[in-house]
Simulated assay, not measured.
Amino acid sequence: MRRMDAHSLDSLVTPAALVDLDRVEANLQRVATYAREHGLRWRPHTKTHKTAELTALQLRAGAIGATVATPREAEVMANVAADVLLAYPPVGAGRLARLMALPPYARLSVALDSREALEGLGRAADAAGRTVGVLVEVDMGMRRVGVQTPEDAVALARAIASTRGVEYRGIIFYPGHLRAPLAEQGPALHEQSSRLGTFVDALAAAGLRPSIVSGGSTPTLWRSHEVVGLTEIRPGINVLNDRNSAAVGACDWSECAYSVLATVVSTAVPGQAVIDAGSKALAKEEGLAPQGGYGALLDRPEVLVRGLSEEHGLLDLSGTAWRPRVGERVRVVPNHVCASVNLHERLHVLRGGAPHATWAVAARGW
Rank of each mutant, 00 (worst) to 15 (best):
residue 1 M to V: 05
residue 3 R to H: 15
residue 6 A to W: 08
residue 7 H to I: 10
residue 17 A to M: 05
residue 22 D to V: 03
residue 23 R to I: 15
residue 28 L to R: 11
residue 31 V to E: 12
residue 35 A to S: 04
residue 38 H to Q: 04
residue 47 K to N: 05
residue 52 A to E: 09
residue 61 A to H: 08
residue 72 R to H: 13
residue 76 V to Q: 10
residue 77 M to P: 08
residue 79 N to M: 15
residue 84 V to R: 06
residue 85 L to Q: 08
residue 89 P to M: 09
residue 90 P to A: 03
residue 92 G to T: 02
residue 92 G to H: 01
residue 94 G to N: 03
residue 95 R to F: 09
residue 96 L to K: 01
residue 97 A to T: 07
residue 100 M to H: 00
residue 105 Y to T: 15
residue 105 Y to H: 15
residue 109 S to K: 14
residue 110 V to S: 04
residue 111 A to Q: 11
residue 117 A to D: 12
residue 120 G to D: 08
residue 127 A to M: 00
residue 132 V to M: 03
residue 135 L to H: 13
residue 144 R to E: 09
residue 145 V to L: 15
residue 147 V to Q: 10
residue 148 Q to I: 04
residue 154 V to A: 02
residue 160 I to E: 00
residue 160 I to A: 03
residue 164 R to V: 11
residue 166 V to R: 03
residue 168 Y to I: 03
residue 169 R to E: 10
residue 179 R to F: 06
residue 185 Q to P: 07
residue 186 G to C: 03
residue 187 P to Y: 11
residue 187 P to H: 05
residue 191 E to M: 11
residue 201 D to A: 15
residue 206 A to E: 11
residue 209 R to W: 01
residue 214 S to D: 11
residue 215 G to L: 06
residue 218 T to W: 07
residue 223 R to K: 13
residue 226 E to P: 07
residue 228 V to E: 15
residue 236 G to A: 04
residue 238 N to M: 11
residue 240 L to S: 02
residue 250 A to H: 12
residue 273 A to T: 01
residue 275 I to S: 04
residue 276 D to I: 00
residue 278 G to T: 01
residue 287 G to M: 04
residue 290 P to K: 07
residue 293 G to F: 15
residue 293 G to C: 14
residue 299 D to L: 06
residue 301 P to H: 00
residue 302 E to K: 01
residue 306 R to D: 13
residue 311 E to Y: 08
residue 316 D to I: 04
residue 335 N to H: 12
residue 337 V to K: 01
residue 337 V to W: 07
residue 338 C to I: 14
residue 345 E to P: 09
residue 346 R to N: 15
residue 349 V to K: 06
residue 353 G to Q: 00
